[in-house]
Simulated scan of single mutants.
Amino acid sequence: MDIEQFREFCLTLKGTSEGFPFGEETLVFYVAGKMFALTDVTSFESVNLKCDPGEAIELRERYPAIIPGYHMNKKHWNTIINDGSISNSMMKKLIQDSYDLVFAKLPKKTRESIGDK
C-alpha cells in the first residue's frame, strides 16, 4: 500500500478528517476529532494504528513488521512497518479495526450524527 492508497482508504471511513497537528510531515486521520491513524508523509515507512491490547500482542508475535506503537501508548497502538510483508487487505483490516475502536468510544450522540459506518 502506498501513501495515496492509505490516504484514500482512510478517507472512505465515515466522519473521517485529516490534519497535520504535529508538523508538516505527520499526517493524522481522525474520526470526530479522535486519532485513529498517523504516518510520516515524506517517507511513509510506517503507520501507527490503534489496536485492542490483546490483539496487539498477538499481531506483534505473528508479524515481524508489527511492533509496539512508536511514540504512542504501546498497550493500545501498533506501528506497522511498510516493508511489503503486510498485504493491502491486511492493512485495510488494521485501519478499519483502528477506526472501529475509536468510533465505538465516541459519545452515542456523536456516533449517531456520523451515521452507520
Rank of each mutant, 00 (worst) to 15 (best):
E18S: 09
V41M: 04
H76C: 03
C10H: 08
G54P: 00
K75G: 03
T16D: 15
D2I: 08
I57C: 01
L106G: 05
R60V: 01
K14W: 07
N48H: 00
P21Y: 09
D116C: 12
A56H: 00
D40Y: 07
L13D: 10
P68V: 03
E58P: 00
S46G: 09
E58R: 06
Q5E: 15
P64E: 05
N82S: 11
F36N: 01
C51W: 00
T110A: 15
W77N: 02
M91W: 05
D83G: 07
F36Q: 03
N73G: 03
P21T: 06
K74E: 05
E61N: 12
P68F: 08
A104L: 09
L94Q: 11
L94S: 08
F103E: 10
M90A: 11
S17L: 09
Q5K: 15
K75V: 06
N78T: 06
K50D: 00
R111K: 14
G84F: 08
I81G: 11
A37C: 06
K75A: 07
Q5L: 14
D100Y: 12
Q96S: 11
C10R: 02
N78P: 01
M91T: 09
S43R: 03
L38V: 04
W77L: 04
S98G: 05
D2V: 13
I80W: 02
F29P: 07
T12G: 13
S113C: 11
M1N: 10
E24P: 09
A65F: 03
D2C: 08
E4Y: 10
N88K: 15
G54K: 08
E55H: 04
E58V: 04
K93Q: 08
N48C: 03
T26R: 15
N73M: 09
R7A: 15
E45C: 11
F20P: 11
K108C: 07
L106A: 13
K92R: 12
D100Q: 06
G69N: 04
I66E: 01
G15E: 12
D2A: 10
P21H: 12
